[in-house]
């Protein structure tokens, strides 16, 4: 049997491999190579000399050192970390809470599920425009501004300043993703055998104890996935960042920072942008791999 499959291994996987090679691997490797050159987008420029040959424009680790010293890059890095930490925690809590509520009601669960999932259908750019309008006009003028219903300064002018747009992004992202994550938690909750709860009740466990000792551990696999998905998406967030503030007031997330690095100098420094992109990749790889390993280990323990 194995021989049969082995015969067909290459044909089956061949097309996927070629596609993958052309679209992802080769550009990635070339990108890494370019990050070591003085790439300016349409040409290479080293020692005041114009060249189209990348090999004669190699500058070693210069781009990487420049990237680390680049104040905007470091700011974007910190900003992204702050945003991701807050967003991941909030999304998880909201998704879990609503999953818990939805599994406890009998009628209408389907409708609510549909409603909560809908935000996930919209694309980043369109979403960003709508929420920009909401923050700037609805929040600031109608609801929470000085002439609004209740004046809450923290919710006014949320696209200005440095910290407020962070909250605005969190609100946006929670609105968009919580529904999707909630579905995953619901599936996880539904997979917990009810006899575990019954046994616990017979043993006299309170609701809280049941939650802590049965629900949470059994949700560990779902938690891993939700954590992984939200971590990766928040870290890489781009469209919504562009639509909401376009990076004004130092509100660039990493993805936007990389996109805009070429336009920060003239001639555009694509070499440094590429170096930043490689650092970005390494960061994401470290963060998500660590997360998966840690949560998998917890899963096994539970």
């Amino acid at each position: 049997m194995n021989i049969y499959y082995k015969k067909w291994f290459f044909p089956l996987i061949g097309l996927a491999f070629i596609l993958f090679l052309t679209v992802i691997l080769i550009p990635f490797v070339v990108g890494v190579f370019y990050s070591f050159t003085a790439w300016k987008g349409t040409f290479f420029f080293k020692n005041n000399a114009l060249t189209y040959n990348p090999f004669s424009a190699i500058v070693g680790f210069d781009n990487y050192i420049a990237a680390i010293n680049n104040e905007k890059f470091c700011n974007a890095f910190l900003y992204t970390i702050k945003f991701t930490v807050i967003a991941v925690i909030v999304i998880n809590i909201v998704a879990l809470v609503f999953a818990l509520i939805l599994t406890k009601i009998n009628q209408g669960a389907g409708i609510f599920r549909t409603v909560f999932f809908m935000p996930n259908l919209l694309g980043g750019l369109a979403l960003g425009f709508i929420w920009k309008f909401i923050f700037e006009i609805i929040f600031s003028k109608v609801f929470f501004g000085p002439d609004g219903l209740i004046a809450i300064d923290a919710l006014t002018n949320m696209t200005q300043g440095n910290f407020k747009p962070l909250l605005a992004l969190v609100i946006l992202v929670v609105w968009q993703m919580a529904g999707y994550m909630m579905l995953i938690y619901i599936t996880g909750l539904n997979n917990i055998p009810t006899d575990l709860y019954e046994a616990a009740k017979i043993d006299g466990a309170s609701n809280f104890q049941q939650f802590k000792h049965i629900t949470l551990p059994m949700l560990a696999p779902a938690f891993t996935i939700v954590f992984f998905l939200t971590l990766a998406s928040c870290f890489k967030l781009l469209d919504q960042n562009i639509a909401l503030t376009n990076g004004a007031f130092d509100t660039r997330l990493l993805a936007l920072q990389i996109l805009r690095t070429p336009s920060d100098t003239s001639p555009p420094n694509y070499g440094q942008a590429q170096a930043q992109a490689v650092i970005f990749f390494v960061l994401i790889a470290i963060v998500t791999l660590t997360q998966v390993i840690l949560t998998k280990r917890k899963e096994v323990e539970m």
């Binding site: 082995k6 080769i26 550009p27 990635f28 890494v32 890489k236 993805a255 790889a285």
Partner: peptide
């Protein structure tokens, strides 16, 4: 086909999920 090759290829496919679009954008 549980060979070492298939394992490596699988890792390769999956790890690409981590590659942000920016890293490949320009050369692509």
């Amino acid at each position: 086909c549980k060979t070492k090759l298939s394992f490596v290829l699988f890792l390769m496919f999956v790890s690409a999920m981590l590659i942000p679009f920016q890293s490949v954008m320009f050369p692509l």
